[in-house]
Computed example of a mutant assay.
Amino acid sequence: MLRKLATLPEAARLEIGKAIKTSADEIVAAQKRLAPKRTGALAASIKASTGGNVPKYASVGLTGSGQAGDPDLTVVISAGNTDVRYAHLVEFGTAPHENKGLFEGSQHPGAKPAPFFYPVYRAYRKRVKSRITRATRKSARAAAAS
Rank of each mutant, 00 (worst) to 15 (best):
V128L: 11
K129E: 15
F116N: 10
I16F: 09
K138L: 03
M1F: 10
P55K: 13
A142G: 01
R131H: 07
V90D: 04
P71L: 03
A29K: 10
R137N: 01
K37L: 04
S59P: 01
K112S: 13
A48G: 11
S130H: 05
H97I: 01
A58I: 12
V84P: 04
R3C: 07
K21F: 14
G66E: 05
T50S: 04
E98P: 04
L73T: 05
A58D: 01
V54N: 11
I20C: 09
S78G: 08
K138E: 05
D70Q: 04
A48H: 06
Y57F: 14
G105M: 13
N81L: 02
V76S: 05
L89N: 10
K100T: 06
E104A: 12
A135Q: 00
A43S: 14
V75T: 14
A95D: 13
L42R: 14
A41S: 10
A35C: 05
S130R: 13
A35E: 12
P36C: 04
K56H: 10
E26V: 02
D83I: 02
K56W: 07
I20D: 01
A41N: 14
Y118A: 10
D83P: 03
I132L: 13
G101P: 02
S49L: 10
A135P: 06
E98N: 02
P115K: 00
G66I: 05
G61R: 09
Y86P: 09
K56N: 13
G66L: 07
K112I: 05
Y57V: 06
G110L: 11
R38M: 15
S130V: 05
G52T: 03
S130C: 06
V76A: 01
A145W: 02
V60H: 00
A29L: 13
K21L: 12
A35D: 06
A143V: 04
A29M: 09
